[in-house]
């Protein structure tokens, strides 16, 4: 039972990053100066419009699985990371509404449109950053439910260079994904070139910020690097990511938008899966030690109902999702 639930958490997280992450990336992309602002806006509206609500649902699913199946994890995270969670929620609220308002405002005049775009862009950046911060905070060993001091209990778990660098890294991944996905959303050569250039720059930024993540973790003593290398599959992951770089640039040069999408998504997916795999089944590293899915699981009767709901739900969700993507992403 627990294995199935771990799989669902991992799969939801993966799909949230690969699909929902690109929606945040599209918002960040709009912050870059360009001569094609209007066209870019239109392309992003049409690309994101039909799918962003569904892509957002993966996050909700993770929250529900956690609070029903692993209440201890849910509670520890929500208490210790209260502040970054509120920051994340602010971003989620502003991003979703600004995007919708921009599309559905009955009067389209530059002043209000620019205002929505401004909010959409910065809130996308903001939300992605805090997602990274929260992700990094899970395994730093600074979450301490016993702490009584405000700073130690509610700030220290997420405060530091490592979470910040992870936030930047996540922003880079999301924007990279968006750039690659958007190549296939337009027929205009000038815009395709623009997105391709962006993808190239962001791919480099991803590598640089990725290195920064390892450096920062080393500096604060979390030492992600040795934890990573000591894992039996570490070498496979690194080779896979490097190989995918090569494949990505070949398909990009050969101008195959769909293949590039798949490769980029796989690359981001492998990074996420690697991070998840290195830690699993541990979800949280508290000051007092690691806490795994097994330690935090709800009683068996609850897990059974949760698995049942997820399996039956999947029978409905995946075909509909497939249909949605087939209609809009042909």
């Amino acid at each position: 039972m627990i294995e199935i639930l771990i799989f669902f958490v991992a799969a939801s997280l993966l799909l949230y990053i690969v699909l929902g992450g690109a929606d945040y990336g599209a918002g960040i992309l709009e912050l870059f100066p360009t001569d094609y602002k209007e066209e870019q806006r239109k392309i992003i509206n049409n690309a994101m419009g039909p799918v962003w609500e569904a892509n957002h649902m993966w996050l909700i699913l993770i929250v529900v699985i956690l609070f029903m199946g692993f209440p201890l994890i849910f509670n520890l995270v929500m208490v210790s990371l209260h502040i970054p969670m509120v920051a994340l929620l602010l971003g989620i609220v502003v991003r979703g509404t600004a995007f919708t308002f921009r599309h559905y405002d009955a009067v389209t005049e530059p002043r209000s449109q620019n205002f929505y775009s401004y909010l959409f862009g910065y809130s996308s950046l903001w939300t992605s950053f805090w997602l990274g911060v929260i992700g990094a905070s899970l395994d730093r060993g600074r979450i301490d439910p016993e702490a009584t001091d405000f700073f130690l209990a509610y700030v220290s778990p997420w405060w530091g260079l490592f979470p910040v660098s992870m936030g930047i890294f996540v922003c880079c991944i999301f924007t990279f994904l968006a750039s690659v996905y958007l190549i296939g959303e337009t027929d205009r050569p000038a815009l395709r070139t623009l997105f391709r250039k962006r993808a190239f720059v962001l791919n480099i930024a991803m590598v640089v910020s990725g290195i920064l993540v390892f450096v920062a973790s080393y500096m604060e003593g979390t030492d992600l690097l040795s934890k990573f290398w000591s894992h039996q599959f570490a070498f496979v992951f690194v080779s896979l990511v490097v190989a995918l770089f090569v494949v990505l640039w070949i398909v990009a040069i050969k101008r195959r938008p769909l293949a590039a999408r798949i490769v980029a998504a796989t690359q981001a997916g492998v990074i996420m899966a690697g991070w998840f795999w290195v830690n699993a089944p541990v979800v949280l590293t508290l000051k007092s030690g690691p806490l795994s899915f097994y330690d935090a699981a709800a009683p068996a009767a609850t897990l059974r109902q949760l698995v049942l709901a997820l399996l039956i739900g999947s029978l409905v969700i995946f075909p509909s999702l497939f249909y949605l993507l087939r209609i809009f992403k042909k």
Binding site: V64, I65, F67, M68, G69, P71, F74, A298, P299, T302, Q305, L306, A309, L310, G313
Partner: peptide, 10 residues
């Protein structure tokens, strides 16, 4: 969470 979570999962 484990008791009333079921309707939320649906």
């Amino acid at each position: 969470g484990p008791i009333f979570g079921m309707p939320f999962s649906w």
